[in-house]
Design a protein around this nucleic acid. Structure first.
Lengths: 340, 340
DNA sequence: CTGAAAGCGCTAACAG
DNA sequence: CTGTTAGCGCTTTCAG
């Protein structure tokens, strides 16, 4: 094909035939020297490479894909990048993928189911070799349906037989136990309202914990947030008014929000109020005070899901699902209850 | 092509020929009903759509690309997603791109020139219709060379005739003027050491500013950071020891770092020390105290560069370059000098 | 309005 | 070890 550039000259992207002709060999030989799949006489190989370099030849991606049925791309779907933890996940995926020579096609949906479906359908046209979705708003079965026959992995989903899942209940116990030991008895929790795919709901774990401690549960201490700082900011105030001496936010961003509210309201953390988050968000050390949190071992989780996906793409049998146990990271936002 | 799934059944991805045969029409008619480029008899069209739906047909991406030479993908290159401001940029690109039906192939380089080149070369095989790079470590000319003939836009670059650039000097003046008015005379600045493509160096602007004020400049107040919070953390201490009463960090992440250091060192912000950042990082309202900063109008910048790129892809002439003037956003990290 | 045929650029048997 | 020959699935003239 020839392309006219604005400068008026005509640049023609040279193809494998051109190189073959110029080097006086056949297409297959050129193909072989580039793919390295077959041995090519060093002399001719060099000649070919020389010509290719001179002409600025690059094997055309789509043509290769069409012939080999391999795109070496993976579609990754997340809601948005506003949460630094999500960015960390995306970044970690990119690394895990690149290690295996795959590239990442990133789709953001901003919580829109429609957009998610749209992306899945497009990915399903053979745009990618596999898909990873973290979308809470589109359940596994539907994701599979929209994407067609492409291998698909859903992030930390209980339902989908994903290769790795986080033991949320263990994480919750971990946080609650920490607070309990510091003497807190009125512990507020801000859970994530919209979390499909994630297994048992946080509040159930909370109730179980309190039962185990022989403690009656005050339902008014259990509220649902939308994952953004803003909702921590609002709910922090609510929970404080209801007499909480500690707040467990189910993600760090909301934890940041309660920290911000506390600061403005003049309640001291951790002297007056303890707060723990969850994620181990990259920013958790930068807020004031640095946030105690339940760690999410991002790299481990992404590595396992990518490995699982590639296994599936390459036809290997699925491995045992791994249950990742989160750990507590104590920083400065938690301390003993003050007894007035 | 047929694919054997692990369940033993054979799923064959149906192609346009299959649909044509089943619907009793020719390939071109099927093609036309899908692309909508030509009128197709409603009856026939419906029959085709019915068959296609029943068979789960999807036009194959690579084949279409090969035939049309349009990938509808744009490669975006950034160093990493650790800085929430970078994430905001990426997110903004995704939106601007999606609005025009383009998808985003995201490459991260972690500051590695090699990785950047590698990505550019791969993009250059026809994987994308255009490229946007924000990489400071690979200069425009080299980026063009590695990517071949693909349209390429570099983020806010002075050198590259990009459609939008930030007026850095104006931003610096803005910050400095604000501090000056608050009575600060010993103002430390943490600039970004590795910023190619970005125009005049920050320290020069600083010197010009001070000259204008008739103020001798103390070179020891000018230090270079690496853009991460850690370097703000260290350099904050250094600058404080050198007697700075205010610090201007050339990005918010470093600003967060000096805030963190100050807090640990017991220096109060803004009573003892004022700090201003630059970016208007999404996290700037969440740190304590909320950071005064020089705004980077991310959406505007991305919209302009995307528009410029698409213009170039579709052969439209380049438009006038726009100079974006950043503005000051005053929050709580700056205040009047204290005179001891 | 619909069909036939010729590619797009590359790979993959299969011969030589 | 190298060349020949078919496609991969879709678009696109160009006739009918």
């Amino acid at each position: 094909m020839t392309v006219a550039t604005k400068s008026g000259q005509v640049k023609s992207r040279i193809s494998i035939d051109g190189i073959a002709r110029l080097a006086g060999v056949s297409k297959s030989t050129v193909s072989n020297t580039f793919s390295g799949r077959k041995f090519v006489n060093p002399e001719v190989r060099e000649r070919i490479q020389e010509v290719a370099a001179r002409m600025g030849y690059r094997p055309h991606y789509a043509a290769k894909v069409l012939a080999t049925r391999k795109t070496m791309m993976i579609g990754v779907l997340v809601s948005e990048l506003y949460n630094p933890n999500t960015s960390a996940i995306v970044q970690s995926f990119e690394q895990a993928l690149l290690r295996r020579k795959y590239k990442m096609l990133l789709g953001l949906t901003y919580g829109s189911r429609e957009r998610g479906i749209e992306y899945l359908e497009q990915f399903g046209t053979g745009m990618v070799d596999g898909i990873i979705t973290t979308l809470p708003e589109v359940p596994f079965r539907e994701a599979v349906r929209s994407s067609g026959t492409i291998p698909l992995m859903v992030w930390c989903s209980v339902a989908a037989g994903s290769p790795a899942i986080l033991d949320h209940e263990a994480g919750i116990n971990c946080a609650l136990e920490h607070l309990w030991e510091l003497g807190h008895r009125r512990i507020g929790m801000i859970s994530l309202s919209s979390c499909v795919n994630v297994g048992p709901v946080s509040s159930e774990s909370y109730v179980r914990f309190m039962n185990r401690k022989g403690m009656p549960v005050d339902e008014s201490l259990l509220v649902g947030g939308d994952s953004h700082a803003q909702s921590g900011y609002q709910l922090g105030s609510v929970l404080w008014q209801r007499g909480a001496t500690a707040i467990f936010a189910r993600n760090d961003l909301m934890g940041f929000g309660v920290l911000k509210w506390a600061r403005e309201a003049g309640v001291r953390v951790p002297e007056d109020l303890s707060v723990v988050g969850a994620d181990d968000n990259p920013m958790a050390t930068l807020v004031a005070p640095p946030l105690t949190t339940i760690q999410m071992p991002v790299d481990q989780l992404t590595e396992l899901t990518v490995r699982g996906l590639i296994d599936q793409i390459e036809g290997r049998p699925p491995r045992q699902q791994e249950l990742i146990i989160p750990r507590l990271i104590v920083r400065e936002s938690t301390g003993p209850v003050s007894h007035p």
